[in-house]
Design a protein around this nucleic acid. Sequence first.
DNA 1: ACCTGAACACCGTTCAAGT
DNA 2: ACCTGAACACCGTTCAAGT
Lengths: 238, 238
Amino acid sequence: MTIRNPFEPDTVVSRRGGKVKQPLGRDVIVAKALELLLRDGLDGMSLRKVAAALETGPATLYAYVEDLRELEALVLDHALAQVRTAGGRQKPWRERLDALLISYLRVLVRHAGLAQLALRTIAAGPNALRILECLLGILEDGGVDDATAAWAVDLLMLYVTGIAAEQSHGGHDDAVGTIAAVLRAVSAESHPHVHRAREELVSGGEARFAWALDVLVAGILGRPRPDAQAPRRAKGSS
Amino acid sequence: MTIRNPFEPDTVVSRRGGKVKQPLGRDVIVAKALELLLRDGLDGMSLRKVAAALETGPATLYAYVEDLRELEALVLDHALAQVRTAGGRQKPWRERLDALLISYLRVLVRHAGLAQLALRTIAAGPNALRILECLLGILEDGGVDDATAAWAVDLLMLYVTGIAAEQSHGGHDDAVGTIAAVLRAVSAESHPHVHRAREELVSGGEARFAWALDVLVAGILGRPRPDAQAPRRAKGSS
DNA sequence: ACCTGAACACCGTTCAAGT
DNA sequence: ACCTGAACACCGTTCAAGT
């Protein structure tokens, strides 16, 4: 039914014709887990299913991975490898910021369930650090002082992750349909503001994301932390 | 061991001394579920455990509740009843905004696991609507036009919910310890910005929340939606 | 010493058998 | 008709028995 991909290194066919299992390893396990996540969503990725896909028992994975939580963290970071942080210093900082955050958003929404996973796991792998490093550099180029930038990246990432989770809500979009129905049914007497805003509350898409980014950036630029030093390259004022 | 609360209506002792089960109902189930959530966190609240606490089988709950997801939504809204939206129009709008969001934050962090629940459930119950209505009214008093306010409430709630989840991370705080350790170990060569910001990235607390609120409000006031009508009470400029 | 089948203690959900 | 015990199809994790 399925065509064998000759570059797939998971199983090796020995000269006798029997399948020979590739020795496991964190990377093989993580790659297979991400594959299952991508195919079947968050519920499709369990230790048992990953083990089954690797044709072994569930206990085996514990030789390579501490925990389900650790596997989730590894999978998240593995997926974050697709977030583009390259692009040199030529473009203006604001464009680079938008490009990075949109890339991050796209990676999260592309894999069903990855956004949910990002919400419960705090990413601390090499790719998360790479993104963090790039983000801090961009904000510095934008003239944001170090102390403010440190808090700002958290705010930015939190928003993008949250929006991504909201956008791809568990893979099932009946939830967003439910809230739309609830809002449409709200009476003008008891909740006048909600009633008036009922359409706008669920509208949005790309424009909404762009607007929110603008709000965040404008706020960050306009409200440096009260205890912050002036940015290094600005004219010093102690 | 425990003193009987005479106002507790959950079980009734008959004159023969035997326990008589109170007829179930959504409210009884939801209250018990919230009680378990408060006591044991997110993992402590399962359909089976709620059923067991109510001294019945797990199948029984399905007569009153569609689903685990529905029960979670009901529990979330039941807890949101504690969010204070009263306080008339006397105080300035900004103070009322802060008070409301802080109250929301406190309710989420007080109950272990409620923030995580709020992240995966989109609240659409009566209390969520009450909060939404209040929030929209406050923003209107602040001179924010309707269209911008509709998107702004989502941004504000998303941030507060996210911060709450981050703050009470699954009840276990070893996660935040882990990321602190990772950040402390980051080399200055490979990640200079992260290295320099390693302390600031995890610091914060109350001041951080206040700063972020300031950023959001400043951004919202400074960046009305491009397609927005002028606020109703402002001098018209078409 | 390493690997893992089987077991343990759970889940959400369904359904047929009882009242 | 309503309620629910038992069953079904899963979980993550542990551990003792195998190689």
